[in-house]
Design a protein around this nucleic acid. Structure first.
Length: 268
DNA sequence: AACACGACCTGGTAGC
DNA sequence: TGCTACCAGGTCGTGT
């Protein structure tokens, strides 16, 4: 679930619910989600402080509090949702930030791989510096993308998923973007023409913008959200089914240990 | 530099 | 029905 579009939808939702509110109680229900030995320190820091804003960098949520940021990474199955009953958070709740006796935010994560960390301003800058450009930001221009990408010998899918090169793209949207651009996932980036790199840039923007729109629209409906029904997937998970564009059978291969889906008919 | 692989966790599901 | 094996949207550390 949580790649850039979903994390952005969570950000919008919890920024609206939490900005300006004071945390009256912070409970980390599963200490291992924080760096070793820091869970109670983080709880103490957050308690009594006001949330200024919630921003996003790549797939990281940054909850800005008291000049620092609580970085939350949702990993595979995490989500943060406003709750009206902080005392009876669901079993999979890993952290609860209460705004009063009833309302607050809950980090829900069935698989428990999500992580939190408290960052000072230097650590925020360091995180920022370790990540590639935000694909939906104004400075992610065709030129900026094609200049860097054209020099890499990485397979296209591996390149798209490398957070230090482009921020926020994961396994599902990498497949969808490459399908939209008609590019084979194993094709080395430096063997794509300038024109094809530009169309890839365009596919990145269009696919992610579309997905952000759908993710934001379905966030409020937990049923839809959990089924991932917001965005109509065109190749991901469709092994053996006919391509929606050319009717060839969609294939699944493994790249870097992850499933990659593509159409052998129209991705070259 | 590039890539493979295991670990981290739990739940769902296909197959027997 | 009940068991096992395998799979899952991410990242990090280790090894080649």
């Amino acid at each position: 679930m949580p790649e850039l579009p979903e994390v952005e939808a969570v950000r919008q939702r919890i920024h609206a619910a939490a900005a300006g509110r004071t945390i009256v109680a912070a409970r980390i229900l599963r200490p291992r989600i924080a760096p070793r030995g820091q869970a109670s320190r983080i709880e103490r820091f957050l308690t009594g402080r006001r949330i200024d804003s919630v921003t996003r960098r790549a797939k990281n949520l940054l909850i800005h509090v008291g000049g620092r940021a609580l970085r939350v990474h949702l990993r595979m199955t995490g989500n943060i949702q406003p709750t009206d009953d902080v005392r009876f958070a669901p079993l999979e709740a890993r952290m609860v930030l209460a705004f009063d006796a009833h309302r607050g935010l809950a980090l829900i994560d069935p698989r428990g791989l999500g992580r939190i960390e408290l960052l000072d301003s230097a650590a925020i800058a360091s995180l920022d510096g370790s990540l590639g450009p935000e694909p939906l930001a104004d400075d992610f221009t065709p030129h900026c993308f094609t200049a860097a990408a054209g020099r890499s010998r990485l397979a296209a899918k591996t390149y798209l998923m490398d957070q230090s090169r482009i921020a926020g793209i994961g396994n599902i949207y990498a497949a969808e973007i490459l399908f939209a651009a008609g590019i084979h996932p194993a094709r080395p980036m430096n063997r794509l023409s300038a024109a094809r790199l530009e169309s890839l840039h365009e596919a990145i923007r269009r696919t992610l913008e579309d997905a952000v729109h759908h993710a934001a629209a379905t966030y409020a409906d937990p049923g839809l959200w959990n089924e991932g029904a917001g965005f109509a997937l065109r190749v991901y998970g469709r092994e053996g089914m006919p391509c929606t564009r050319c009717a060839s059978q969609v294939r699944r291969i493994v790249q870097a240990g992850r499933s990659t889906y593509y159409c052998p008919g129209c991705q070259r």
